[in-house]
Amino acid sequence: MKITRTGGIAALALVGALALTSCAANETPSGDDSEAPESTLSGTFNGAGSSAQGAAQEAWIAAFQIANPKVTINYDPTGSGAGRETFIAGGSDWAGSDSALNDDELAGTFAACAADTKAIDLPTYISPIAVVFNVEGVDELNLDPTTLARIFKGEITNWNDPAIAAINEGTTFPDLAITAVHRSDDSGTTKNFSDYLNQVVPEIWDQKPADAFPFQSGEGAAKTSGVIDAVKNGVGTIGYADASAAGDLGTAKLKVGDEFVAFTPEAAAAVVAESPLVEGREGNDLAFKLNRTTTDPSHYPLVLVSYSIVCQEYADPAKGEFVKAYIGYITSEEGQQVAADAAGSAPLSSDLSAKVAAVVATIK
């Protein structure tokens, strides 16, 4: 999939600002500073990975290419696991991933990076994961973590199960089999979904979170779009996907503390703000260890932090120059607003944005 110059009005509105931003990374303006100097960036650059980032990447790329007309960017939303593999092998210039590099990946080498250097994780996109459903006659659905885990583990198999009825007073559910749709590909969205359930109800969701769905239950579908299509076109279906893709499907409220909470970008961002970074990594690596055990109903713990995985130093300096400018833009205030408008994501906090900007400034 090649995402090129398609995008919305919000992206176009940023052209002037982006021209200044991208050039600032590469040259000092001279002469009449009332006009943006021409961008010096050129070439074709490739990214791959997170399908959750798809809508945001489309908007980011549209705006960046307008400000940098000699640049062509291809982003292939193959899924987080495939994206990391492609980047590690040198097939892309950066990866989008809803899960950070793991210890085994960090112990290896990265083909695009300069010798004896490592890749790092930079938070790029914060978004709720929606539990989407399609059940005729049911417009609202409450789920607590126990019931949600048992549905996707295959222990609750019918919509009229007493456990569902007990937390949805006043709703009549049909005598209808549940089809629980999970990601069939290696997916950071799956890892975040599993991490949430493993943290909150580990006695039920007893498998270590990973990009692969851990149980032999339900129905698999590839990528975010595949899950959404399967839920939309099925009968009695339920699935999980980045909230930007939910569309007109029903979305469940999750029990947090004593209340059932609908997803919002702000409630998702609140969880990230109160979570620590993963320990034992290089100082430039900003991977989060999300704490999903909150009982504060102003928080929505089923959240993902999607990363841009980049080299600290590239073997090809031209690629380093591009990545520095592009990742600098998408994690800037302007870029984060474009993602919020296009995908409903939560902008990085000012504190986190400053930390990311400091790291981006060191990319070579």
Rank of each mutant, 00 (worst) to 15 (best):
G283L: 06
W205N: 04
G234N: 00
T147M: 06
V310H: 03
E282R: 10
A343K: 10
A166C: 11
G43V: 11
A270P: 08
V278F: 00
A10K: 05
D139H: 05
A17Q: 14
G328H: 05
T331V: 04
A149E: 02
A10H: 09
L290Q: 01
R183N: 05
Y196S: 00
C113K: 02
A342D: 04
T189K: 05
P123D: 02
V356C: 10
T293C: 10
A63E: 02
R292P: 08
Q53F: 14
E58K: 07
D121T: 12
T6P: 01
G83H: 06
V200D: 07
G137L: 06
P214R: 05
F152W: 09
S308L: 02
I88L: 14
K364D: 15
S298A: 15
L12V: 12
S349V: 11
V135G: 00
S99V: 11
D186P: 03
V278I: 12
I309C: 09
C23S: 14
N68G: 08
N198K: 09
A89I: 09
P123I: 08
G31D: 07
G236K: 03
A163C: 05
I164V: 07
D144F: 11
A210H: 12
L101K: 03
A115H: 01
D229L: 03
G54R: 09
S184F: 12
I129V: 14
S42M: 04
A36K: 13
L304W: 02
A67V: 13
F45P: 13
A269C: 07
I330H: 05
F215G: 00
N26Q: 15
S298G: 13
A245C: 02
T6K: 14
A245M: 06
Y326G: 06
N134H: 12
K191C: 04
L143D: 03
E169Y: 06
L197F: 12
T78K: 03
V256W: 03
L277M: 09
G54N: 04
G280T: 13
D93T: 13
A357I: 03
S97T: 13
K319Y: 14
S244L: 10
D351F: 13
R183E: 03
S353K: 14
E169H: 09
A221K: 07
L122W: 07
G54V: 07
N68I: 04
I363R: 11
L18Q: 12
T224M: 12
K319I: 12
N68D: 12
V181F: 08
D98V: 01
N134F: 09
F173Y: 06
S99C: 04
A119Y: 11
A315R: 06
V360I: 12
P69R: 10
E140K: 12
A361F: 06
I88G: 01
S42K: 15
E38I: 13
A339G: 06
I178E: 08
S349Y: 08
G54W: 07
W159L: 04
S353N: 11
D185N: 15
G335L: 08
S194Y: 07
K289I: 00
L106S: 07
E274I: 04
K255P: 00
D211Q: 14
P317F: 13
R5H: 01
V181K: 03
N26P: 00
N192A: 15
L249D: 05
A62K: 09
F260D: 00
G220S: 08
Q53Y: 12
L20K: 11
K208Q: 10
K355R: 14
D175M: 13
